[in-house]
Design a protein around this nucleic acid. Structure first.
Lengths: 195, 195
DNA sequence: AGTTTTATGTACTTATCGGTACAATGAATT
DNA sequence: AATTCATTGTACCGATAAGTACATAAAACT
């Protein structure tokens, strides 16, 4: 069976470029001309390789989680809950370095409020944010079991608090707040850590 | 001098309706058909009364600050810095009540990431968020002068921390987090308060 | 009552959106 | 070398975006 003409571009590289556009513009704000230009391909190639705009966004979101956001799972593997929280914050702030247009966090700014057309994407991101809260909670619950966190710690609230500060840091980063100040805020946020 | 036909709608009521749409949809996601339908007027009336979409958004943003967000200035007038911070968080959470579509905060979700067309609005909102940080900082600086906060308190970071938690609460609220959990997070966030 | 002036409603314009038809291209298989 | 078939480029599609022209409606003044 002949395999046809070979693809003229690297799909992973193109996806990284698409990710940058979605990150900077959000799902709605990213237009196909801007996406195709950044990806270095034309429209039919995009549709052949990635489906449609919504599917492309989902693939970019997956890549975001396994790429720039991979520090999250690493952070959760830290030996103590406190170290995990610190690594979550510092990992996120590290991720903002050398970043010009795509500041903040795709999971937050991808579609925080949106038109009807982007409603499903918005809901998926909201659900993803909630699932991240649950992941944090579980990490802290096992820390309580290990005696790493005090018995009676409200792990649900602690997980949500870490997620809230993380979301707040994303908003701050999207507002142009410099790295140094983000680090000071993260350090202060750790002052609420249970003793 | 004849004054012409009188306006058939209340401009303030119409502006409140527009605010709800921008709040739920963001600047880009709000379309003129949705705006005019919610406002109960037709398109030429909107343009005659409010200018264009961008000017309408700015007027809705002003109304947001003097209406739903008016708790902010009240909170800053609390006798102590700590009471002010608590009132900021609880006031914001109160504001989320009885709210179905327009959850979160217009200043955050109005245009966190956006297309080229909405770039100026996005920048204005980012600047507004930074100016809110500055307002918090000033409040805490005078608290230090009054002896309400310890000498040597990092007021810039404290102001930014409060703004970060507030932004994080806005993201959480936009994600559907219920009031009760928001209150627990706010209470935990106060655990970082300087002693 | 007649005139002036502003608001309203319908219908339009231009631009851009996401998505696709179709012919040309070109590497792998036969 | 001929054939196959997915990729590529151009050009297009219908839908919808923001914004406006223009005729009609109605209130205030003379």
């Amino acid at each position: 069976m002949p395999s046809g003409r070979v693809r003229q571009f690297d799909a992973d590289v193109a996806l990284d470029r698409a990710l940058e556009v979605f990150w900077a513009r959000g799902y709605e704000g990213a237009t196909l001309p801007e996406l195709t230009k950044a990806m270095g391909i034309n429209r039919p190639s995009l549709y052949a390789a990635f489906g449609n705009k919504e599917q492309l966004f989902r693939k970019a979101l997956d890549r975001y989680q396994t790429g720039p956001m991979s520090f999250l799972t690493e952070a959760l593997n830290k030996p103590t809950a406190r170290a995990a929280a610190e690594a979550i914050f510092s990992g996120f702030i590290d991720m903002q370095r050398n970043r010009e247009k795509a500041r903040g966090c795709l999971i937050v700014s991808g579609a925080l409020a949106s038109g009807e057309e982007a409603e499903t994407v918005r809901q998926e991101l909201a659900q993803l944010r909630q699932s991240i809260v649950a992941v944090f909670r579980k990490r802290f619950e096992s820390a309580v079991e290990d005696g790493d966190l005090p018995k009676g710690t409200d792990c649900a609230t602690l997980g949500r608090y870490v997620a809230t500060v993380l979301g707040g840091l994303a908003v701050q980063a999207a507002s142009g707040t410099p790295e140094k100040e983000l680090r000071l805020v993260a350090a202060m946020a750790m002052g609420a850590w249970p003793t």
